[in-house]
Design a protein around this nucleic acid. Structure first.
Length: 548
DNA sequence: CGGCGTACG
DNA sequence: CGTA
DNA sequence: GCCG
């Protein structure tokens, strides 16, 4: 731990607190008192201020204080309180994970990562006269639940957890009578593919276990030096977690879990450890090891994945500030735009209201331009998620098989001119399709615009993905863009393995005979998602049941 | 022991 | 390689 | 890391 001392003792050690708002969530009253006392003294020395409970959030976020610490007994309550707040309140919301992690572990690493805290750490230690026992005790018990949750507020895109833990969900919803035989039968009855079962957002009886397995998936993806292998292990843990989510009883023994799909030797060991200790010890690496903490923060930049992140760390680029430096000196020029918008895109939860407002705005512009486009909100919000990191907006021409490309072009031009689109990460608008006479003759890419928009109401920058499909391909595009990622992978794996169909966002083809296809234009008329499920021999799944 | 979703830049 |  |  002491080796972390390097390169962080910069002269401006105490500056970053100024102008940075810190949201600090703590659970038990004991913690509140202790942490509040410790931090308030030090924060005040640093020119920050400390405010009481989450209930006065609205009032103090409007004040001019440089920094804020919130203490709360109820994290989910805090989250709901925080969601509607304006951007100005949340420049430091990323610090939720930092704060929770450092309290949990008495660690300096994350604090130093943000250059805030040599001082904060010493003040925590000071409070206990150098021993850490008091904070330890206050944070023992089931608080890891909250720590994990907090650590997941702003994870990187690829490794973003799918579901948020509801406090004490495990305890609330089981103890219905079940014999061991019941449970083994139930385990055996879980279908192999996620597309064959409902995966809703509500907590399950094994919620915490699943969260730990998801965290293990993230860990494996980050620690593997071979990204394919990393993804393979990521997939393995994600699939195990997804299957366990569908197990209706609390798991009592690792042996009975063996009957659940994707729960093999290693997952069984993990379950055993969880049942014994209530956690998976490896997972704590995510918030204790400097390497993972740093990599985690780099992965938050659009364009940095595990490989680039690892390379940056290896070359001494260990913080976002250094990535900016790196970028300014001409390296990785493609990261420049994502870095410019980093704060907006990473420090602000987007609620459903935000997403709907953006959706409506685009539709209004389209109709005022006289365009004949129809739209659908896809992505996580279609799956009924309460919040998300981007808006996925799918569109097609109202009447014509082709014609979406030129209309999208007009739309995007207008959105740019009005200052709604403020930056474009990527754009593909291929007007060849509009000139293609007969359907099915040119299967080019979908038209896509991945951009950053400015919410007209809140002025917050948001990621918006616009996708236009050929009219008949729309149900495939909708299915493909509604996710989630695990559901899509399992659906396509199922289609290939079980039905011999190759399946993507344009249509379905027989594996052996690609000319035998099912699209909206063929005799097997496919007009809705239901038709696709039907042809795949699957019961229809509502989007809200695709959260695997 | 090979395969693991598929398409887009 | 990274993103959806 | 699990499945066929």
């Amino acid at each position: 731990m002491s080796k972390r001392k390097r390169d962080i003792n910069s002269p401006n050690n105490e500056q970053p607190l100024r102008g940075l708002r810190i949201l600090f969530l703590v659970r038990t009253p004991q913690e509140r008192i202790r942490v509040t006392r410790v931090l308030s003294r030090r924060l005040e020395e640093l020119g920050a201020s400390l405010v009481g409970s989450v209930e006065n959030l609205q009032s103090w976020t409007r004040s001019e204080v440089a920094s804020v610490v919130v203490c709360t007994d109820d994290i989910s309550h805090a989250k709901t309180c925080c969601n509607p707040l304006p951007l100005s309140a949340f420049e430091g919301v990323v610090d939720v994970s930092w704060a929770a992690g450092c309290v949990q572990n008495r660690q300096v690493a994350t604090i130093r990562l943000l250059n805030v805290s040599e001082a904060t750490q010493t003040s925590i230690d000071d409070c206990d006269g150098g021993s850490r026992g008091v904070i330890d005790d206050a944070l023992d018990g089931d608080d890891q639940q909250e720590t994990m949750e907090a650590a997941k507020w702003w994870p990187p895109r690829n490794l973003r957890p799918r579901r948020y833990l509801q406090p004490s969900s495990d305890m609330d919803c089981e103890e219905e009578a079940s014999t061991r035989q019941d449970r083994i039968e139930a385990a055996k009855n879980i279908p192999k593919y996620a597309c064959q079962r409902k995966s809703h957002l509500e907590a399950c009886p094994n919620e915490r276990l699943c969260e730990y397995l998801n965290a293990m998936a993230d860990l494996r993806a980050m620690e593997s030096h071979d990204s394919r292998l990393g993804d393979t292990k990521y997939r393995a843990y994600r699939l195990a977690s997804a299957a366990i989510r569908c197990f209706p009883f609390r798991i009592r023994s690792a042996e009975e879990a063996e009957y659940i799909p994707y729960c093999g030797g290693r997952v069984k060991e993990a379950i055993h450890e969880y049942l014994q200790t209530g956690k998976l010890s490896e997972v704590s690496k995510l918030w204790t090891e400097e390497y993972f903490i740093n990599l985690w923060s780099l992965l938050g930049v659009h364009g940095i994945g595990t490989k680039t992140g690892r390379e940056l760390l290896a070359s001494g680029v260990t913080s976002l500030d250094l990535v900016v430096q790196h970028c300014l000196s001409g390296k990785h020029p493609s990261l420049k735009l994502p870095l410019v918008f980093y704060n907006d895109l990473n420090h602000n939860l987007m609620s459903r209201d935000d997403a709907v407002r953006i959706h409506d705005y685009v539709i209004n512009v389209a109709s005022s331009l006289g365009l004949s486009l129809e739209f659908a909100l896809a992505g996580g919000f279609r799956r009924n998620k309460k919040n998300g990191h981007d808006v996925d907006l799918l569109m097609r021409h109202k009447y014509l098989e082709f014609g979406h490309s030129s209309e999208l072009q007009v739309l995007v031009r207008a959105l740019r001119a009005s200052g709604f689109i403020v930056a474009t990460f990527h754009e593909t608008i291929d007007q060849r399709r509009d000139r293609t006479a007969s359907p099915g003759t040119f299967d080019g890419p979908h038209d896509m615009v991945f951009c950053v928009i400015r919410d007209p109401q809140t002025a917050v920058g948001r990621r918006l993905d616009l996708v236009a499909s050929r009219r008949s391909e729309f149900p495939f595009a909708l299915l493909a863009w509604s996710g989630n990622a695990i559901f899509e992978r399992q659906l396509r794996e199922y289609a290939k393995e079980v039905k011999g169909w190759v399946f993507d966002g344009h249509g379905l083809w027989k594996k052996e005979n690609p000319s035998e296809c099912a699209t909206g234009t063929m005799d097997t008329m496919i007009e809705t998602e239901k038709d696709i499920f039907c042809i795949l021999g699957l019961d229809y799944l509502d989007p809200s049941d695709r959260n695997c």
